[in-house]
């Protein structure tokens, strides 16, 4: 399982910039980013090298930041590879709330992050089926 940071930002120019400025100053390495947006606010979700340190730096700078557990896995870069994994989760009743991709280590593979209700259960299903899970150390 990976630790993801979620940050509340108003949907206006310069706010994402302020998040990144804070992380840069704290020497945090950002590995993946996705933004869920509504007309008035957004939730920035990040995978970083040190989630606790990043969240601390953000809170000191008056951001609302929350750490959530997500699950990440590596799949080979060929047709149907993503389908196989998603199908596995679906068949086992695991709902995916959202998903995005992570910067991969290997060009012949893809790294995928998913947020599910029960990360532990999903992890067991995936590792039981031989899917390569990414640990915090792999991600950084």
């Amino acid at each position: 399982m990976l630790k993801q940071i979620s940050i509340f930002v108003e949907n206006k120019a310069g706010r994402l910039c302020a998040v990144m400025e804070t992380l840069a100053a704290a020497k945090i390495d950002v590995r993946a980013m996705t933004i869920a947006d509504t007309s008035e606010f957004g939730i920035v979700r990040l995978i970083v090298n040190d989630a606790e340190k990043a969240a601390g730096a953000l809170r000191e700078n008056n951001f609302t930041a929350k750490i959530t557990e997500v699950i990440a896995f590596t799949i080979p870069d060929h047709f149907g590879a993503l389908y196989d994994v998603i199908k596995l989760l679906g068949e086992n009743g695991v709902n995916i709330e959202y998903s995005y991709s992570l910067m991969g280590k290997n060009q012949s593979e893809a790294d995928i992050v998913v947020k599910v209700g029960d990360a532990e259960k999903a992890g067991k299903i995936l590792s039981g089926a031989g899917v390569k899970l990414i640990s915090p150390n792999d991600a950084v």
Partner: peptide, 15 residues
């Protein structure tokens, strides 16, 4: 103003 206890990584919750 948003507070940590109002925020849970989920658009639906915030909305």
């Amino acid at each position: 103003e948003m507070r940590p206890d109002m925020f849970g990584d989920n658009v639906g919750e915030v909305e």
